[in-house]
Design a protein around this nucleic acid. Sequence first.
DNA 1: TTGCGTGCAAAGGTTTTGCATGGCA
DNA 2: TGCCATGCAAAACCTTTGCACGCAA
Lengths: 137, 137
Amino acid sequence: MAYQTAQSRRILTLLQDNKERHLTAEEVYFLLKEKGETVGQTTVYRQLEKLFSEGIVRKFAGANGNGACFQLAENGAVCKAHYHLKCTDCGALLHAECDFLDELSAHIRADHGFVIDGSRTVLYGLCADCAEKENRK
Amino acid sequence: MAYQTAQSRRILTLLQDNKERHLTAEEVYFLLKEKGETVGQTTVYRQLEKLFSEGIVRKFAGANGNGACFQLAENGAVCKAHYHLKCTDCGALLHAECDFLDELSAHIRADHGFVIDGSRTVLYGLCADCAEKENRK
DNA sequence: TTGCGTGCAAAGGTTTTGCATGGCA
DNA sequence: TGCCATGCAAAACCTTTGCACGCAA
């Protein structure tokens, strides 16, 4: 972004305050509104797209294929094996930072010739709480 | 589906003929049209949603967060560790059926208390061909 | 001053819903 | 015969685009 405006700063700040979450464009819009920092929807979409093309934010496919989700990329640690686990039941987002995932990447690359892009990939399933609830049924 | 109609059979047949692909609702609609088996768009959406809720088809988030993709679930082998690798560049869909993924599931469950749902998860990245192209740049 | 950024309104594309008709069991 | 399924049209949604104005550099 060539220019720095009040709106672009507000969006970036919101993303920084929600590093651990995946936000849809709509959520960004409403969260800003709640803070009294209203930014036009158009601008939200355009800024997010711009930040994404600059590699500043990550863009994920929503769990149900509805809307795209955005999240601030970790500074300098983009390449680190850091996968996201998203609970399809309660929506919780877990951050798995562990060596096993490095092995996974290495294996997939070696045996399947496929280079996983951790910044795009979300593993769906059930978190501990929801899995337990499911079992009790 | 309580009733079996010509349309529901056509959709199911198409899915069976495209087991290895991820089809969007739109693709299902057009592929049927090409076969001369036109089915109303509304019906396509409703049938896919129904089949999904019955566990007969899987539903994935599209790579870019645009539309949902559907695929017939393998008969009886739903629980098998079978992940999908989708190339974000050329769109190729690879099927990774290997023991390592069992280990991954086991590890994530043991260490992170998270139960991965392979039928929902797609690993994004670059396939061998596209990764090579990327390197040559 | 230049030209990017903004936001309104309108357009575009996809998915869902209302309702009358048609077809399966 | 009863009820679900179908499909048209319209509505609802989400996202993008056109255009004039405002503001950062």
